[in-house]
Computed example of a mutant assay.
Amino acid sequence: MQTRLLLVEDDPEIARVVRDMFVREGYIVTWATTGLEGWEDFQQEHYDLALIDLMLPEMDGFTLCKNIRWESDIPLIIISARKEDEDKIEGLDLGADDYIAKPFSLKELKARVESQLRRWRRYQGIPLNENVSTYQGGLTVYWDQNKIKIEEEESILTVKEFDLLKVLAQNPERIFSKEELFNHVWRQVDQEGLHTITVHVKSLRSKLKDPVKTPRYIQTVWGKGYQFIGELM
């Protein structure tokens, strides 16, 4: 199963950057903009780790950490512009596992999240390569290792092909236009990129052994774009 993160952050610029980075890395991210919304999201879904800002509307980060810790032992990382030692100590005393001060680098945040997840999985006795999805039809995706197997045979994807598979598979309800896929994966805005998407999707389908007329994984929605239709086992 893919790793689920709960991100509770009321600054949309920071939240979008953090969310998009972790989505590209293969995580499923739920973004809440208030402490109360974060608490409601936590009660409705299973999460592997939570990233929580301290200064939140409706319910502050301290209270949210306390509420979560009463019900779960998942890793909690506080992200905050407040650098006072008292805040850090209070957060850790309430059960947070780590504290990172704004501004922070995405590289550092990613490293801290991965470190906490490794500790948590060792504590739970979960293998470190558990971040795997298996779909009907013989497709297995190893999200942490950037590789796939099709009918038990490993298939080598390019970086861009794997990134395309990630964004499609992690948003199965959504139809992506070629422009959206090019903007997301290549991070560019260029009409010439639409042909690039066509070429890469064709190559990806070939490696997935996924025929256009009877697709199991990537469906063309004529006039709109592409949608992932693979069914999890």
Rank of each mutant, 00 (worst) to 15 (best):
N67L: 13
I78N: 08
E71Y: 03
G223T: 06
E192M: 12
D97K: 06
T63H: 07
W70Y: 11
A101R: 04
G26P: 00
S206C: 06
G38P: 13
R121C: 00
E86Y: 15
V23F: 03
S155W: 14
K147D: 02
I89C: 00
I197L: 07
F22R: 05
P172K: 08
K147E: 14
I79K: 06
I28L: 13
K66R: 13
A169G: 03
F22L: 09
G137V: 03
G95I: 10
L64A: 09
P172L: 06
K207F: 05
F22P: 04
Y99H: 07
W31Q: 09
L165V: 04
F182V: 04
D48M: 07
W120G: 00
A15P: 03
A111C: 08
V221G: 00
I126C: 00
H200A: 14
D41K: 15
A15D: 05
D93H: 07
E71Q: 13
L194A: 06
V201R: 02
N171D: 04
Y142P: 03
D98S: 15
F162Q: 08
P75G: 05
H200Y: 14
G138R: 09
Q2L: 12
I79F: 09
F22W: 07
Q219F: 02
S177M: 10
N131R: 14
P103I: 06
D53T: 06
R205S: 10
M21C: 10
V23Q: 12
R16D: 05
L194S: 12
M1N: 05
F228I: 00
G95K: 06
L76I: 15
F104S: 08
D93V: 03
V212S: 11
I14Y: 09
R174H: 11
E180G: 02
L109S: 06
M21G: 01
K102I: 04
H195C: 03
T158A: 07
Q170N: 11
D163R: 15
K166W: 03
T33Q: 12
K178M: 15
L157D: 09
M55H: 02
V132R: 11
Y135M: 05
L7W: 02
V23W: 01
T34K: 08
E151N: 15
E130A: 15
L6G: 04
S105D: 12
D97C: 10
P75V: 02
D163W: 01
E86K: 14
A50M: 14
A50N: 11
L56W: 06
P57Q: 04
V201K: 02
P57G: 05
V8K: 05
L208M: 09
T3K: 11
Q136A: 12
K209H: 14
L139M: 06
L181T: 02
L94T: 05
S133D: 10
N129S: 12
P57D: 05
E180I: 01
T158N: 05
K166D: 00
G95M: 12
V18N: 05
V189M: 14
A96S: 11
E173V: 01
Q227P: 01
L94V: 06
Q124H: 07
K160V: 12
K107T: 13
K102M: 08
G91T: 05
